[in-house]
Design a protein around this nucleic acid. Structure first.
Lengths: 169, 169
DNA sequence: TCCAAACCCTTGGATGTCCTAGTATATTGC
DNA sequence: GCAATATACTAGGACATCCAAGGGTTTGGA
């Protein structure tokens, strides 16, 4: 999108906050802004690796989730809850995955309101290949040190829990 | 979007990765997924605070950036570089801010290719009010401890630098 | 001087996310 | 048993992001 800037724009923003008398919240502002930007960078990397597979991150996440379900199938509402996205986002992803013959919709055996998403053989294979690519090209080269990874998992885990994502642990 | 899950879905994913023989990259995968989810939570909080002002995060960022420029004006390409988003995203944001009379476009005095974005008085006032709201309702209550904030700034700063965001310090 | 290459912004298209409604099916309570 | 409430999915709309392409302006080398 552009070449490197001569200065860190987030560090500059933090200084601006301090200069305007908002020093109390300048550091958290910088940390939060850094999280936003880091997510953007990571998402771009992930999408770049998935593109050759005809997948986006949203579709990959759903495929991966299904591949870990013993039966290879999940109700849409369950997928929505586990992926922590709006139900309409799941509908959207399933529409496209279904067109690509990677998943299929089937009626729930006992609840007429519910639709099950099932992985096709093709979908299972692609999920495996895409995961291997992500493991070697993104997760295996995150650039984060082992200690930092542990720290991130702990700090962000506490944050997510406090935000109401889950109740255990 | 939903009530808390009984278990942390990211911790479950990490266990799944380990169970499938990808233990080497399970932790970075969990850290990266946690960053994605944390960004989602933070963005929702921010958008919630900005909604009463008729702003989105993208528009707020542009407004805030302009408010720190001494002249209150910046070329579009400069804004794109500093916000680290695609030029078309800036075009989009400016279109909407201009309709709301918060900024206006003016020609660059010496370079006919360039368009300057200028903050209006109304835009400057709104930026100030929105910043105050974010400071008190989001940044001031991030939920991150002081030490964790410092750690995040450092770790994510190193990451962004390694990713080519900037070259200084 | 002058034309090609570089640069700047906008338009149009594809995706993803969320929200608000609307339809269909289950559950609950009287 | 039936009406009221709750739940599940989908349709349509608003926004944001990126990419690909197009038109105008500058710059630089022949």
């Amino acid at each position: 999108m552009g070449s490197p800037l001569p200065r860190d724009p987030i560090a500059d923003a933090q200084r601006n906050w301090e200069r305007h008398g908002w020093g109390e919240v300048a550091a958290p502002m910088a940390a939060i802004t850094a999280i936003m930007r880091t997510q953007q960078i990571l998402l771009a990397r992930i999408e770049g690796v998935l593109k050759p597979f005809g997948l986006t991150f949203a579709r990959y996440e759903l495929l991966a989730l299904l591949s870990f379900a013993r039966s290879g199938a999940l109700p849409m509402n369950k997928a929505s809850a586990l992926l922590q996205v709006h139900p309409t986002s799941v509908t959207n992803a399933v529409d496209r995955l279904e067109k690509a013959a990677l998943v299929l919709r089937s009626p729930h055996p006992t609840d007429g309101r519910t639709t099950l998403i099932e992985l096709t053989a093709e979908g299972r294979t692609l999920a495996k290949r895409a995961t291997a690519a992500l493991n070697s090209e993104v997760f295996g080269q995150s650039g984060f040190g082992d200690e930092d990874v542990e720290h991130l998992i702990r700090v962000l885990g506490d944050f997510r829990k406090a935000a109401g994502d889950f109740t255990d642990g």
